[in-house]
Amino acid sequence: MSKAILTDITKCIGCLKCVSACKETNNLEMDVPRIWQKNDGLSAENWTSIIQKPGNHFIRKQCRHCLEPACVTACPVGALQKTNEGAVVYDSDKCLGCRYCMMACPYGIPRYDWDQSVPYVRKCILCFDKIKNGDQPACTKICPEGATIFGDRNELLKIAHNRIAENPGKYINKVWGENEIGGTSVLYLSDIDLSFLSYNTHLGNKPLPETTEPAMKSVPFAFVGMGGFMLGLNWIIRRRMELSKNQNEDRGNKDE
């Protein structure tokens, strides 16, 4: 059931139609280069961008819609949710603006309305309204080259592996997003190294929510344990004081 996007870097011609389709679908406003933006073209008003690399390589950047997203785990009020369809969606009514999701994302995707006095977190939501009704996202729909396609995640993985097998030497033998940090719903096929899309070149296959899980699971034990330890300590000390009090009666306890 989980849907995904497969982007084939070798097919992209950098026409930017996906970018403008995204803007139109999501009613995003005109973008202006701001000092707080990152140099990847994404911004509060730009949810997908094309990064140009030497040799006419065009890499479309967007939210990766991780299978086990760090941002969803991070959000204290559950404003970010992973839906069954695969999209990571944002509920602005719940958000309190702590920006922990932006800190947690290993790809540095979520952007913020820094210029607004009522700011929200902004990122690609995989055109959730459309895919819910069986349609596909605006970006994949408009792509003239079929460079970015939408479909069932398992099928897209099959297609990707087929392409690698059918065109030996054309691609790097890896589907980006298949296993990294537990897998993502936005997959890439590429002839160049795409590790610059994340903060670290070696993300590993361990989902990020698992890093905080042990700490969160031990919370009740730490709570009860500390309470028990303190009570026990208090009991021992009181007992000792009583014993010594019995030994020399003349010392009375001070009033606290």
């Binding site: 959000c75 204290p76 009020v77 559950g78 404003a79 309190l96 603006g97 702590c98 929200y120």
Partner: peptide, 24 residues
Amino acid sequence: FDLGLPWNIWHMIIFWNPHSPLFE
């Protein structure tokens, strides 16, 4: 001052995400 939407600070009371360290 830091929160983008400080008037929503009480949201943590009604919207729960027990997996989040920040929630705790």
